[in-house]
Each structure stands twice: as structure tokens, then as C-alpha cells.
Amino acid sequence: MIKKILIIFAMLGLFIVFLPLITNFEFSQNLSELASKYVRGSVDELNSQNVVTSVIVTYRGLDTLGEVTVLFLATAGIGFLLKKKNKKSKKRVASEILQTASSFLVALIVLLGVYIFTHGHLTPGGGFQGGVIIATAFLLLLLSDVNMKFNHTILQVVESFSGAFYVVIGIIGLVLTVGFLNSKIIPLGEYGTLFSAGTIPIIYSLIGLKVGSELTNILDTMRGE
């Protein structure tokens, strides 16, 4: 009973705190100075069509590196907590429709994921979305074949190499140009084509591979045996 009253008081307090945030909020009519600099710089300096991508990969690249590290730590934590048991249990075989469709669809879904992360600087999407789509392709494999076992060595190699190359590209930027993760270490190319925007597509592809392998690992661990 006391707990319920306390909860109601907490909710009322939060409501009173949030109310002035809503009523006094003034929507600005123009972009802030920083945002205008990013929008202009995305065209003038980086040759990238998608401003969000250039903010994530170049202007706030160090944050993204930290964020990918957090994802890695969470994956490691899940793998540590949920150890695998090698217990033989009777599993229901997937239906024939699912098996046939997955053998046909997995390659197409992986292709879509690769398309999304290589075109991250041109269209909406990028490494995180592409990586998740690749992970869903492997999820389809897990669902269709109950005895499916992933080769964890390959997953670990892909994951650690893409992470290492990400840092190496950042350090090359530090040596050759002005700062860590600067994308101008290779020619910027023509605006609006696939091979443009310097290292942005390369870094986003590496992020895509890293996120895809990590999420596949999470799914495989959560499924258990």
C-alpha cells in the first residue's frame, strides 16, 4: 500500500517537472550555428550527401568509436553471463516452407544489408542499419535450421579486424591530415557517386561488419542450446 502511494507521488513529481518543459518549449525557426556548419561542411568539405552520416562518421567519429566499444562490451557481458550448455534436447524441426524460403532469401537479405551500408553516404541508412539487416539474415538461418551452429572463429575474426581497421584508419588520419578519423586521407571523388566522400563509405562498411557480427553473436548466445 505504501509502495503504491509512493509510486503515485513519484509520477506526480515527474509530471510537474516535465510540464514546464512542454509548455515553455520554443521551437526554433532556424538551424543552430553548429548544425548549419555541419550542413555546409558536409557538402563543401566532405562531399557527402547524407548529413547525418557525416556527423556520425566524421564530425562525431570518436563518439561512434566509443559507442561501438560499448556494443562490444555488452556482447562480451552477454556471452559471459549466458554460458552454453551442451544438453541434447528434442527440438522441433522447422516447417518446409521456412526451410525452402530461407535458403533462397538469406543471400538476398545479406545483399540488401551490404547495399545499405555501402550507400550510407548517399541514401538513408548506414553501418548500423546494414549490420542489423545482416544479423536478421543469420537469424533466419537460425530459425530454419534448429541444429545450425555458427563458426565463432570467423565471427570473432571479422569483428576484431573491422574494429582494428577502424582505429587504424583513424590513426592514419592523425598522421596524414589534421585530426583523428579525418576522412580526407583518400581523394574525395565526385559529389553524389558511390566512390566519394573520402573514407566515409569504408568506415561505415567496417562499422556494418562489426555491428552485424556482434548482433549475430548476441542472437546466437541468447538462443542457447
Binding site: P124, F128, Q129, V132, I133
Partner: peptide, 9 residues
């Protein structure tokens, strides 16, 4: 971009 991420993740 956020819409794609939210729909898939």
C-alpha cells in the same frame, strides 16, 4: 535514418 534504425532494431 532514425526511422530505419528503429524499424529494424
Amino acid at each position: 535514418d532514425v526511422a530505419m534504425t528503429e524499424a529494424s532494431i
